[in-house]
Each structure stands twice: as structure tokens, then as C-alpha cells.
Design a protein around this nucleic acid. Sequence first.
DNA 1: TTTAGCACTCGAAGGCTTTGAGTGCTAAAC
DNA 2: GTTTAGCACTCAAAGCCTTCGAGTGCTAAA
Lengths: 362, 362
Amino acid sequence: MHGMEFSAAGHPALNERTLHLLRTLVERYIRDGQPVGSRTLARDAGLDLSPATIRNVMADLEELGYLRAPHTSAGRVPTTRGYRFFIDALLHLKPLDEQEIETLRRRIDQPVRDGADLARSVSDLLSSFTQLAGVVMLPRRKVATLRQVEFLPLSESRALVILVLNTQEVQNRIIHTRRPYSATELQQAANYLNEQFTGQGIQQVREALLRDLRETRDNLNRLMQTVVDMAEQTFENEPAGEDYVVAGQTHLMQYADLSDLDKLRHLFEAFNHKGDLLHLFDQCLQADGVQIFIGEESGFGALEDCSVVTAPYTVEGQVLGVLGVIGPTRMAYDRVIPVVDVTARLLAAALNSSSEFRKYRP
Amino acid sequence: MHGMEFSAAGHPALNERTLHLLRTLVERYIRDGQPVGSRTLARDAGLDLSPATIRNVMADLEELGYLRAPHTSAGRVPTTRGYRFFIDALLHLKPLDEQEIETLRRRIDQPVRDGADLARSVSDLLSSFTQLAGVVMLPRRKVATLRQVEFLPLSESRALVILVLNTQEVQNRIIHTRRPYSATELQQAANYLNEQFTGQGIQQVREALLRDLRETRDNLNRLMQTVVDMAEQTFENEPAGEDYVVAGQTHLMQYADLSDLDKLRHLFEAFNHKGDLLHLFDQCLQADGVQIFIGEESGFGALEDCSVVTAPYTVEGQVLGVLGVIGPTRMAYDRVIPVVDVTARLLAAALNSSSEFRKYRP
DNA sequence: TTTAGCACTCGAAGGCTTTGAGTGCTAAAC
DNA sequence: GTTTAGCACTCAAAGCCTTCGAGTGCTAAA
């Protein structure tokens, strides 16, 4: 094991046989969670090699940091690096069959009340398909664009704002008005906003309004004053709105890897303590397709023995959010990756084809 | 132990000393979860009795079904009946001090988006105050009354309905219309509905409309036809809407009683599997104040080692829903009960005083 | 390069003993 | 009649030992 060649991806070049053995070992370990010994591997690999030979190879792989032995006389277990190599170079994905895709599609296309509801349902879906915890990040407000605004007088000094967004969503807010407005005034203000800003991001709307109009307030006619008054409050304090939904945490209790109650508690607390996970998901917004964090790669402690598989979903070319699953490091990547991938695509498709709110009713 | 007298509540009359000992024992067990032995109890009770005497008393209490011994040489532990008696007859509640109530009030009075948001926040509150799992049942749709309706044309055959309810809530639905309606027609229909039905339960609105109007449809003028068309869809398929929010499940992991992973999993699954718990809460809607289910009293398996403490909350005299906590049987009832009680009252107060949506903004 | 053989390691599982907190019962003391 | 001291007894928990066996690495022969 010297004069080692390195392949493009930064992994050392290993011969066919070694690769095959590593692959078989990881698969086996994923299957039943027990350290894999030379004897077992010899049988599994179907290579007609003696355990002794296998041992030599395993020793090499351990040296390279792909495997480790929990203790002297146990078999070998993949390290994070081992999983990484397995996923990057050895994994044969199991694409979903037509029927499974159809099931997914049907469940995603079901009518929902709003964005949060949809997220919940997709999260459930991910979780039940993979037996892991499903996570769906809600559309980030920043990329939401305006479809329609309406104002509804509630009382003397209060009005209800209805924002219809491009993200399957109708949002309500109550605002306080400086003075009583008539229904007609409100109607006109809404008309103006709809004409001017439909299709733009609400962030932009806000900026445009503040910049252009506020400074010239004194010169405005009555209509424009109404518009400004309404719009300022409507778009101010845009709630941070970065949020996600987790489903199926309980599935994680069945994996021996996490059966340590203390670890599990930390993990569950991480789910509630939204800040940390959001940071992780934010990184995935950039990525183009499925992204995988193995064990400590995710960079924070609670996920120590977990892997995270994510994929962003887009609407009209814009990345709206991220979805994925969280489970033990030894999850069935060959199946989980396609599920996450396809789900993201289907969700995107569903959101895209619903410009007319198709999905509110079947 | 014969010629036993029974007191009004169906509990046998026990002498002062026995009561005191039972009380002390339960308190002690709640404090540290260990079976309580005669020696410990002798010290704790401050009665200057020897362990031997205590043992005699404990034997009697065991006979009565209030205590049991996990095994021959362990101390005693309260049975469900023991807890029941303790709560009914021996418990000294620890009322919250002014400052704690103020803290609760402030957190409940915080502005929220909608009913679900409020429920989530109150649930969190319960959980963090008690270190148990907090549960808040959402307002039942059945008792929601109508405050205002508006229709908003979205496209040719679709309209957005905005229902403002008395329960802190603004609800949106998309409906399909039989034919295109002008904004004016929709406005008139809304006006009519608002005039006729404001303040009534939406269940009633639905019935009234169906009964009175449908049968005479053919004779109606154009306005009334619009009204009927809109209203039918608006109020049809009233979503079941019985739902609740749980927060702080993770707290439950810290109690040794539930540290059996399998029990815990069942418990957590029960939280997700909403049907069962809803049935339990439904029973609490009737009750007038705090209600307590100890262990198997709740009548379903997952809650075997848990107690449930609930209280209904009301708006305008109507029971809107139920809130409470779920924790190990040996929870600190003296504190938990007041917390649940006060929280329910404060929530009711907050909802009642917000006829004008006071709480949407601070 | 592969393999058989062998000595070695070490966790898991089971069995044994010890410990100590608790019991119930009896008989004497109050 | 209570209360208590005394005593024999019970039993889970903890520690210790042994056994078992799955696994290892190394060496030397094929």
C-alpha cells in the first residue's frame, strides 16, 4: 500500500476487488447494523476468497480511514469517510418504480389549505416512505411574489389585509390605520397596488414603496397617501418566516444506533430548537440537487450519528425551500436519495402547475 | 381494621395519623421517584414514631389498595387509587404567586397570527412552566361564530372567501363558482350575509341557509341566488377541525418512569395519532374545571404511566376547547393543577377581551 | 498473493456472591 | 390496646468471575 494513486475526486485509487469488498461491507452494515467480520464478508462478497485474505483488505481499508473496528475483536464498521466514499463512488441508486412515483404524486397533489399544510403533508410523506424523520422547509418569504392584495375594513382604526402569494398561500394580517378609511378608499389603494406590483417580490414591493413614495409624501394626493399608509404597515416587519416542519420523529426511536436515550433527547430537542437546523438547511438552498451530510459533516453535535439528505425545490426557477430526511448514518441511501429527489421534483411540479390554485380543489 | 366507616366521597374514613402518613409518602415519592420505606417515612413524617409502627400503617394502606410494594423488600409506592385519594382529599395546592401569574399573562397576551399560533404558544407555555408535555385543543369549529364574511374574485370561476370568526381567527377558503360573478355582486352577497348572520354559529348559518333558501331557489332574485351559491360552498364540508397542538414532548424523556424506550415510543406515537387523544379531551369539554386522569383512568394504553391534567377554556360562556398537560403519574400535582387552571382562565380572559382583535398587535 | 493455522483479545452473557434496604412477625414495654 | 425493639427473612442491585465465541493479526507454507 504505497505509491498510492489518487483519482479525480480526491479518493485514492483502489482496485476493483477492494472496492467491491468495501461496497459489500457497507451494504451489509446498513442492512443489519452489526459490525461486519471477515468471515461474513467473505461469504457475502461471493468472491471465493478466504477470510484471511479479506482481513488483509479490511486492514488496508482501515488504514485509509474508511473503516474502523469498535474494538479489537469486533468486525469493521464504516467511518464517515467510508460512507462518503461509498455514496460518492460506489452507490447504486434504486430508482423508484412508476407505481411508487404515482403514489407520491397523488399524495402531493392532494388539496391543501395553505403552504404550511402542504409542508406538513409532504413531510409526512417523506417520513412514511423512508421510515425516517421528514423535514420540509417552508417557502422563504423573501422569494414570495405578490399575486393580489385586498384590504377589508374591520373597525374604525383597523383593517384586515389579505395577501395572495405565488406560494400557494393566502396571508392575513391586521393593521392599524392612522385614520378611518372608507371601503372605497381601501379598494382604490388595493387596485393601485395590484396594478403596480403584481408579480414582484414582496421584499421589492416594500423597498420600492419606501424609497419612491415616502420622501415625497407631502406632495401626494389623497389616494396615494392611503396607499402609502396601508402598504407601509402591510409590508413592514415582514416576519422572519424561515421555518420548517418535521414529521415522523418517532421513527427514529427504532434505530439501535440512536437508542441511547440521551442522544435521542438531544436530537429531538434539536428539532424543536429551530435555529440550528435552519442554518444547516440554508446551506442546501445553494446546492443544485440532492445533498448529503453524513454524521459530523453536518457540523453540529446533535446530529452526530445521523445523516441528512436534502434537496431544494423550485418554483418558476426560484429556489423556494428545501426538503429532506434525517435518519441514522446507516440509512438505506440507495432508496432514500431517490425518494428525496423525486419528492422535491414532484413538489416543485405541483407548485408550478398551480398558478391558478389548481390544487385547492382536486 | 374492621367496622370501617366510609366518608361521603366513597373513601374509607382513616384517622388523622394515617392520612398524614399517606400524604407524606405520596409527596416523598413524587419528589424523588424511589419507593418509600418505613424508615424514611418515619423520618419524613415528623411524628416521632418508630419504623415498626409505620410499617403497620403501611401494611393497612396496602390492604386498602392505596399503596403497593414493587417487590417484597422495596418500600411502598402509591397505586392509582392512592394518587386519586391523595388528589381528592389530601392535596394542598400551591397557588401561583402574583409574579408567576403576571409572567403567564404577559406570554399569553403576546400578539399572534391566528388560533393555531396561539394554541402553539400556550402549549409551549404550559410545557415550560411544568416541564411536562403541554397540550392545547384548538377551538372547535362548531362553536365558532361569524363576525364577518367577504368574497374576493380570484378568476372567472374562483373566489376567495374570508371568514372572520370570534375565535381570534381569520379563515380563507377558495370556492368554485357556478358562473362568473362581478365584484359588486359578491359585495352585495357579503353584505347580506353579514347583516343576517353576524354573531351566529357557522353551523347555524349553514343550516339556516340550506333550510330556508334552497327550497325556494327558483323564486329568488339574482342577489339571493348569488348569496345561496356562495354560502353553500362556503359552509359546506366544514372541515372536522378537531385538532390539538402538543409541545415539549422531549421533557418527558427525563422521567425515569418513562425511560423505557418502547413505552416512550408508544406515547409519542399517541401524540401524533390524534384520534385517541381527541376522544379523551372530548370528555373534558363537559367538565367544569380542572380534571385529572391518573394512569389507566384515561382508558388507553399508551398513557399507562402518565397522568393528564386538563381544564376547558371558554369564550363568551361557550366552551371553546381544552388545554392541559401530560406527564408521569408522579408529577407535582400541587403545582401543575394551579398552572393548568390559571392558564385556562388567562387564555379565556385573553380571548374574551379581544372582541376587537386587540391581541393582533401589542 | 493467497491461505491455513494459531495465539490472542475482548465484549456479551450467565452465574455466583455480597450488600443493604426493606419487609413481617413476635414478644415485651408503655 | 398501642407502640416498639428485635430478629429472621427476602430480594434487587452491584460487583466479580468465568465461559463463550466472534473476531483479530501474524507467521509460515502453498
